[in-house]
Amino acid sequence: MPLHDLSHELGSGLPYPGDPAASVTPHATVAADGYRVAEIACTTHSGTHVDAPAHLQEDGATLGAYDVETFRFDARVVDCTDYEARAAIGADSVPETDADLLVFDTGFADRWGEECYFDHPYLTAAAAEQCADQNCHVGLNAPSVDPTPTENAGGDEPADFPAHRALLGNGCLILENLTNLAPLPERVVVHAYPLPVDADGAPVRAVAVSD
C-alpha cells in the first residue's frame, strides 16, 4: 500500500506570526566530541502539528487524554483548491460523511516558507460547527483553520478563533500545516501521531495510506 508523507520537515518554513521559529542545531559533533547530537527547539504548534482542546480552553483536554488509536483516522479529502487567498470556506463545502477526519486541501502547501502562506483560505464558524456535528476531526494544508493575521487581513474577517473554538469545544482535534495532499484519493487512512507529551498540542509525523 502506498505511503504518502504529509509532514513538513521540522524547522523548515516560517513560524506562525508571533511564535518563535523551530530549529535543529548541532550540540555535539563527530569531529569535536566523537559523536553527533542535535538540539531541537520548537513550540507545541511548530511545523505539521495537532491542536488539542487545551490549546484554547482553560479546562480543555490535553493530548494525554486521547488514546493512541485516536490518531489513526479514516479520512475524507475535500478539494478546496479553487478558493482564493483569505477566502472563507463555508458550510456548503463540508460534505456529509462517515469519516472521522475531514482534510481540506486548500492548495496552499506549495507556498510553505513564503509570507503568502499565511493568507490561506480558512473555515467559517458554520463550517467548523458542521464538522463538529458529524464528530469529525479536521486537517488542512494551512497554518490555521481560522484566518491568520497579516497586513492583508480584511476588516470583516472573524476574530477570536471561532473555527478553533467550534472544533476544540466539541473535542475535535485539528491537524495543521499538512502537505502533499494532491496525490491522495478522496478516502484514505491518515496516521498522525504526536510527540508523547501531555500538552495543548505537538508536532506530528502525518502519513497517509492509500490502496
Rank of each mutant, 00 (worst) to 15 (best):
L167M: 08
A21Q: 10
E157C: 00
F104M: 02
A182T: 12
T43S: 10
D67M: 09
A61Q: 13
E157S: 00
V189P: 07
E84I: 11
H191S: 15
D98N: 13
A182K: 11
S144I: 02
R36E: 14
T179S: 15
A192F: 04
T43E: 04
P196Y: 05
Q130Y: 00
D74R: 15
L14N: 03
A75K: 01
R165H: 14
A199H: 11
V189W: 12
R72H: 14
P15W: 03
N177H: 15
S144C: 07
C80I: 05
C136R: 01
F118I: 01
R111H: 12
P53E: 06
H45V: 12
A202T: 00
H8Y: 14
T43K: 02
G171N: 08
A21G: 13
D100K: 09
A61L: 11
D19G: 03
D92V: 05
G169W: 06
V209S: 14
I174A: 09
P147F: 00
V207I: 15
V103D: 11
T43F: 04
A142T: 06
L10E: 02
E186Y: 08
H164W: 11
C116A: 14
V94Q: 07
E39D: 12
R111A: 13
P15E: 06
G18D: 11
N177E: 15
P20G: 01
G64S: 01
T179M: 11
D51Y: 14
L181K: 06
E115K: 10
E115I: 05
A128Q: 02
V138D: 04
P2S: 12
